[in-house]
């Protein structure tokens, strides 16, 4: 264990912890744009700069490991000046269209500008001018809003492994793009959507739920993905009885926030106009709408007239445990063991 002080408060953390982790333990706020504990630290955004006694330059709290007796200051004038300057620089190259931005209210750049009182930048000059990429059906890329934190690049390389995007060009003209600046759909991108989930600003926006709700209006529901057997944790965003957004649930022990294209972008089947909404019954060869009472009593009357072994039921690997349990219980209580599901498929 290592003991250090932050703003004069003593804290003990494990060796190898970062200053940021030690600060979190003390509940001391340090802003970050490019940090995510799941990835290799980048030290790129420089928002987390802190002052360390006896160190010449400011240090990035996200990546500098703690040392015994270290004395860290997170609230000095020098630290504030550096953070403010960073924000001014980012803002000088960022559209101020928060009114229509999907990220409004959930944007870390916005949050920090608010916190540090940076309303606008006093730097005039060149700005990014990239065309909006709306070419694929899943997400919109607005590189003008990108702060080059590199979280999307790291999730793509370090979690997904697709490595579809990376930094390209140099200096001011650096941007994140697929190889040869191709469209995402022409790259090795598998549209897992994890880049969207980690983007701290409005550079990557899912098309699902576009203009359907502000972050603060959304009710979050944690659940389990209904597709394959992996059982990833998902966090659904709900507004007006609609699922308007999906994210990986970082707390899931299975998926740790990871998703694939199906869980991330395929849940809109819920609101398909083709969903069945009323019971149907075949009358004179035609399928017609019926009431629940009618439908259930017809089924029950058919079942009552048969012996158990004349009935069969296919349960579902899609349904819940409780429903599968009830299904087999029902058939078995009626004397039928002819119960199966597609376990073999």
């Amino acid at each position: 264990m290592i003991t250090l002080t932050i703003n004069g408060h003593r804290v003990e953390v494990e060796a190898g912890s970062t200053i940021l982790e030690a600060a979190e333990k003390l509940g001391i706020f340090i802003p970050t744009l490019c940090h995510d504990p799941r990835f290799t630290p980048a030290g790129a955004c420089r928002m987390c700069l802190v002052e360390v006694e006896r160190a010449r330059a400011l240090m990035a709290a996200c990546s500098v490991p703690v040392m015994e007796g270290m004395a860290v200051h997170t609230d000095t004038e020098r630290v504030h000046a550096a953070r403010k300057e960073n924000l001014r620089l980012l803002l000088a190259n960022h559209p101020l269209d928060c009114l229509t931005c999907e990220k409004n209210g959930d944007c870390r750049l916005q949050e920090y500008c608010y916190r540090y009182g940076i309303a606008e930048s006093d730097y005039q000059g060149a700005r990014k001018e990239y065309a909006l990429d709306e070419s694929n059906p899943f997400l919109i890329r607005d590189l003008n809003k990108c702060v080059l934190c590199g979280l999307c690049v790291r999730v793509c390389h370090e979690i997904n492994g697709a490595g579809a995007i990376d930094f390209t060009n140099r200096g001011f003209y650096t941007k994140v793009a697929p190889a040869f600046d191709d469209a995402l759909e022409a790259s090795s991108c598998v549209f897992c959507g994890m880049c969207v989930d980690v983007c701290p600003v409005g550079a990557l926006t899912p098309k699902q739920g576009l203009r359907r709700g502000r972050p603060w209006e959304l009710q979050k529901v944690r659940t389990t993905c209904p597709f394959c057997g992996t059982g990833c944790g998902l966090e659904l965003s709900v507004k007006d009885d609609r699922v308007v957004g999906v994210k990986g649930d970082p707390a899931s022990p299975v998926s740790r926030g990871q998703t694939c294209v199906k869980g991330r972008f395929g849940l809109d089947f819920l609101h398909s106009p083709d969903r069945l909404q009323k019971p149907l019954m075949r009358k004179n060869g035609e399928m017609v709408e019926a009431s629940w009472e009618e439908a259930l009593s017809l089924i029950a009357s058919k079942m009552r007239g048969l012996r158990g072994r004349e009935m069969a039921g296919f349960s579902s690997a899609r349904a819940t445990n409780e429903e599968n349990y009830l299904f087999q219980k029902l058939f078995r209580m009626l004397g039928s063991n002819n119960i199966d599901h597609c376990a073999r498929l």
């Binding site: 980048a42 928002m47 930094f167």
Partner: peptide
Amino acid sequence: ESCGKCTP
């Protein structure tokens, strides 16, 4: 020649 990684 800046690599473009860090903001400052």
